[in-house]
Design a protein around this nucleic acid. Structure first.
Ligand SMILES: [Mn+2]
Ligand SMILES: [Mn+2]
Length: 329
DNA sequence: GTAACGA
DNA sequence: TCGTTACAACGCTGC
DNA sequence: GCAGCG
């Protein structure tokens, strides 16, 4: 085969065989105690094979893959609006958080109910992205060892037009108190320009702030806006905030205001996602009042978040009602 | 985690 | 049949 | 093109 031969079509995503046997409902699944091995889980019209349920994913906390699947089942109504119809960046931990992980953005095979989007990257390579659709799709990706959900900032309808801006506050060495303060500076700037902003813990070390958007601007334009916003935050609070990308050039008190994730094919850890971190923390949506009073990353875990959301409500419930247009002045 | 491979 | 192996990223900035 | 970063 020479380089002048016609380019061979990339093979289609192979459809894996549906598994037989009796299926348990989601409700029944949640009542199980430390199940071992594999099960077939029925959610709506879809059947998801879930395997190695007793595998330890968080050794220190003794939390299992079953615990993780239960977490996502419990919060599915909260998280799915933020995942639906978006390509997924699968970060897979098939042997738990202390074992090697790998990324997967090109699906080789998947069950029939999984949607994929064939996209071309900058080098011209075709990639079959997994796309979130239903709870069953989410649970299938979790079964592959995808502890954390990382979705695109745009949906398959408008892949080049993000429907939110994400501002990522990365403390590195800066104290948590500074992260909270920088978040409030972001809020201050947002208020002044009349934009609605939603904060959440990242579940790892920082805070994420999202601005819901109408999907009218391309990534480049949205990133430009995010850059201006981040720059203004750093200008107002230079002791605790910076847009300097090189770690060595950041002061130890400065929180990195990362605006650069607003690009096609990039992502942040989703709101409500579990994190592959100690304590099995989650990315918890917050009210601005909580940011003012101060919360801790470790306040929110896969063990307590479902109850907290059901009892105290979801601060991001109105997110998609608040989709706004950007004004460039 | 699993599909493909090979003894 | 069964143990082993192979395999699974991208995009942006600033040198 | 490559290193650094996420
Ligand atoms: Mn971050
Ligand atoms: Mn970041």
């Amino acid at each position: 085969m020479g380089k002048n031969d016609p380019v061979k079509e990339k093979a289609q995503v192979k459809v894996t065989k549906a598994r037989g046997g009796t299926a348990v409902s989601a409700k029944e699944f949640l009542t199980l105690k430390r199940p071992k091995g594999d099960l077939l889980l029925e959610i709506g019209r879809e059947q998801v094979s879930v395997t190695s349920l007793d595998r330890i994913y968080w050794p220190d906390e003794k939390l299992t893959k079953f615990d993780l699947l239960c977490y996502y089942l419990k919060i599915t109504d909260f998280i799915m609006p933020f995942l639906k119809d978006r390509p997924a960046i699968l970060q897979r931990y098939p042997r738990g958080i202390k074992a090697p992980m790998f990324f997967q953005q090109d699906l080789e095979s998947a069950p029939a109910f999984i949607n994929t989007a064939r996209l071309v990257n900058q080098e011209g390579r075709q990639l079959d992205y997994a796309v979130y659709t239903t709870t069953a799709s989410l649970l299938h990706f979790v079964n592959l060892g995808t502890i954390e959900q990382h979705q695109w900032h745009s949906t398959v309808k408008h892949l080049d037009k993000p429907d939110w801006i994400a501002i990522d506050l990365d403390p590195k060495r800066a104290p948590w108190e500074n992260v909270l303060q920088v978040a409030l500076v972001v809020k201050e700037v947002a208020d002044e320009i009349g934009l609605c902003a939603f904060p959440k813990t990242s579940g790892s070390s920082g805070i994420h702030i999202y601005f819901p958007l109408k999907p009218t601007n391309e990534y480049e334009k949205v990133a430009e806006f995010a850059k201006l916003l981040a720059g203004e935050v750093a200008r107002r609070a230079p002791k605790i905030a910076t847009v300097e990308r090189t770690i060595a050039k950041r002061k130890s008190t400065q929180v990195y205001v990362d605006w650069m994730q607003n690009a096609r094919g990039k992502s942040l850890a989703s709101v409500f996602t579990a994190r592959a971190k100690a304590k099995a923390t989650v990315s918890m949506p917050l009210t601005w009042k909580q940011v003012e009073r101060g919360v801790k990353i470790t306040d929110f875990t896969i063990t307590n978040a479902p109850d907290l959301l059901n009892k105290k409500g979801d601060p991001w419930a109105t997110f998609f009602d608040k989709r706004q247009k950007l004004k460039f002045d």
